[in-house]
Design a protein around this nucleic acid. Structure first.
Lengths: 353, 353
DNA sequence: TTGTATGCGTTATCAT
DNA sequence: ATGATAACGCATACAA
């Protein structure tokens, strides 16, 4: 690995001139520029980013802290981050907390967890990253960040009450609303809901979307048509009977797994999904397309969340880190995947309230 | 962010002393050590890794080039990499090539692809990474690396003929062998195969494993029982009839998707999987556990591949980068997931050759 | 247009 | 045991 000094010597100029050429500062004669350029090629010289970084104080690098790489949402979010960063010529220092693997499902209650995060932030800052994106494994309130942060930060797929840290989240309310409006447009009025865990953010927002769609469709909201599962397939299976007895013509499941469970039960009861009864899911997990019939569902804008998060953080960088008091939450819209699990309702006889 | 100089001034010692304390060089009196240590705490000082790196030439950082983060195998492989790196206190600079998104399925034939890889390697080296792990999106021969590499490299989930670059791959042969031995142990003798694309590495190795299991089980290998699909679900569906006509009692599909297709066709023909006929898959994709009945399949050791790859590269680093002429291929074993799709064969009547 | 000199924050060498 | 200082590779202010 040659250094700028060696290039200078080899081409008989000073290091300043070489530096000016590399960084296209002008004020160099065309003649020497070409000559030095050639030497640079020949010796296969690349400037040492570390030295450059030490001097200029910009590393063109951001830190990404992922709660757990192997959780389904993360790869797409990180993919979105990398796409925008590549455009802007930023590199990524990745930290994988492996929270699920270390603490199982309850990591966010662990005492150790906050310390771990702070230590990793410390290390990232020591490496001179210009900003940090924290990527949560599922949406929730995250308050493990130190009071004084030396670099801008944004949280993706979660939010924080820490002032000065923007958040980027799924617009669950919009997604559920759009999906339920679709069900209504297909003639359904009695739409049962198999919700997620009662106090999950996703559950609450999706339920609001459901209610709003009903309102806009002039359909009475019947609380008895909402039943709570726990996101697992089995809970979809378990809650289906209840809704059938309530004479629903469609079931909106708050994730694809529970929709799969509903399929199972419906199948046992000889009710054909997409003909005798409509089913919709949420998340657009891989298996949704393989169900029989393929499941209509709402896709999470994971890639876009990552993309948006990096836009925001690079914007903060450009603004010289001033007036970043806009601790906003940005919502990114979901996109529906219309498949074969929702039938057009023809008869009106089951429509009574 | 205070510097070492400020710490020195604040505690009334020289920077050399502070440095010695930080790096536990000894030759410092207990008294001053404690005093300076306290100041460091108070001022919340962390050494600047960039400056340290410039001076010492070790960044404790490796580069990871992922062909495409969103391909199913990658997150687990990267998770394995991060696990070992965390133990060894190494950080990770991540590059996501996004090859699938940019070039679709044929990226590896693209001219531009090689240049992109070389440019990214260049950038990583400029950042002073100590080594690079290249993670392929699917196993194949990869020869896009520059002749002279300034840092050690290893390829995960693929291999290269470049000398000095070790590879870490799935032991497809072992996996298929073990799975087919299991089928034989369950009494099956006429075991049909729905293979992947004919010239894929995976197909060839898994076929070898199948043949070896047959040999070891004293079962004649009948080439007519092997039919080629294209990894897609539909090709499993399409090839099932042929095997049924050949009177197989079990079908070994070379991936879970094709197994799913076989399920579909079997279902149509009123053959119950796990009772009338056995089906096994490969890869242990998410959907495998949700099939009815849950699919017996062979899990890919993705996490272990990543873990092994980082072990290898950090070993190379320790060896002072000498005699790395061992351009070996390391194979990592697959692990079976026994579920309900394979029945014990009781009657012997269908066993003839 | 080109060269000289200084400093970024750290470690390491050599005095004291 | 502690301190002064050079050096890592680069960018830049200033001099020539």
């Amino acid at each position: 690995m040659p250094t700028i000094k060696e290039i200078a010597k080899a081409s008989g100029v000073s290091v300043a001139t070489v530096s000016n050429i590399i960084n296209e500062k002008g004020k160099v004669s065309e003649e020497t520029r070409i000559r030095v350029q050639k030497i640079i090629e020949e010796m296969n010289y690349t400037p040492n980013s570390v030295a450059k970084n030490l001097k200029t104080k910009n590393s063109r690098c951001i830190g990404v802290i992922a709660e757990d790489m192997t959780v389904f949402a993360l790869p797409d979010i990180i993919d979105g981050i990398t796409e925008y960063c590549e455009k802007e010529d930023y590199q990524i220092l990745l930290v994988n907390l492996r929270l699920y693997k270390k603490f199982e499902d309850t990591y966010y209650r662990s005492d150790r967890y906050g310390d771990i995060v702070q230590r990793e932030i410390q290390k990232l800052v020591a490496k001179q990253v210009e900003g940090i994106i924290y990527v949560a494994a599922h949406e929730r309130l995250i308050n493990v960040f130190p009071e004084q942060l030396p670099v801008p930060m944004v949280v993706a797929y979660g939010y924080t009450s820490h002032r000065g840290i923007p958040s980027v989240m799924v617009s669950d309310e919009q997604g559920a609303r759009e999906l339920v409006k679709y069900l209504i447009s297909m003639g359904h009025r009695r739409i049962g809901v198999i919700a997620g865990k009662k106090y999950s953010m996703h559950t609450r927002s999706r339920l609001e979307g459901y209610q709003r769609a009903l309102f806009e469709g002039n359909v009475l909201y019947d609380p008895d048509l909402v039943v709570y599962g726990d996101w697992e397939r089995e809970s979809g299976y378990r809650n289906t009977d209840y809704l059938i007895e309530k004479n629903v013509t469609a079931i909106f499941c708050m994730n694809d797994f529970m929709a799969g469970g509903a399929y199972d039960r419906l199948d046992e009861r000889k009710l054909k999904v997409g003909r005798d009864i409509a089913v919709a899911g949420y998340d657009n997990r891989e298996m949704a397309g393989y169900e029989k019939p393929p499941l209509t569902t709402m896709g999470l804008p994971l890639h876009d969340i990552g993309y948006r998060a990096s836009e925001i953080i690079l914007d903060m960088l450009k603004k010289e880190e001033k007036n970043t008091e806009e601790a906003d939450i940005y919502y990114v819209d979901c996109k529906p995947y219309i498949r074969q699990s929702v039938n057009q309702l023809k008869t009106e006889k089951k429509e009574g309230v």
